[in-house]
Amino acid sequence: MKCSKWVFLVCGLALVLAQLASAIDKPYEGISADELMRIKYYIKHTKFAKDYQSTGHVWLITKRGFKRHRKFLRSRITLNRESDGIDYKDMVVFTEPGNVKGLAILTWTYIDPKKEQDAWLWLPSLRKIRRISQSQADDSFMGTDFTTEEITLRRWEDETYEIIGNEKFKGYHSEFTGKTYYEGLDCYLVEAKPKRKDWYYSKRIVWIDKNTGASIYDEIYDPLERKARTLFREYQEYQKGYLPQTLLECKNVKTGHKTIITFDEIKFDSGLKEGLFTEKTLMRSKW
């Protein structure tokens, strides 16, 4: 049931995508590391839009340049409902390539950060729906360079934080798009260390935009304190002042493998109904 990792990749992207920076707290002079990261996570988990739709593309690229591609359609509705504790619901349907076409995933995410998601998978090859369990936190996400924890599970309470400096971001050059991003952007540098012992990373250094509080770049270090991976995020200002994430790049420094995720055809507040996020909808799938 490795398909389940796709589930959590994409529904995790729900969290990441939800980095909408309009009506939220902003960093201020003298802010503490804890407070800064709380804002960062607040951005990550806050959904200002009532609903969201987009088309996503994932490229998995080896060091030698061999590319694999997936395309999916994603819908999300924000509920933040106390009665049943549901924060939001997600529906993802893969449309390419043929061997995953039709794979559809429904997830319910809870307000309580300690409660894992509920997820259902439509398996087109079996014509049936399967309830699935969440992957291990240090699992690769659907074969990407992200871990499950990075996409869905990591919470503010999982790490300790320290501001280790301020600097102008040197810029991130994407070989995929050929562009250089955020050169000269004023950033806080935060060192984040996992509370969990013997974990797959020893620390990460996070560049946080002083203006919005959004994290734009991570360096992730392995247990031997060697740089293992880098993670870049681009945001594009959208209608209503929303600031969704439109590009993610994660590189494995050791293997040279990288994962690129892009989002386009983004729509907010288009009036999606909660009834769309049910098994009844999954059963409508043809493939």
Partner: peptide
């Protein structure tokens, strides 16, 4: 029936 245990020591286990 299916029940995915989402909290506690058996979190991540799906029983059906």
């Amino acid at each position: 029936f299916t029940k995915a245990l989402t909290e506690g020591p058996l979190s991540g286990l799906t029983i059906r």
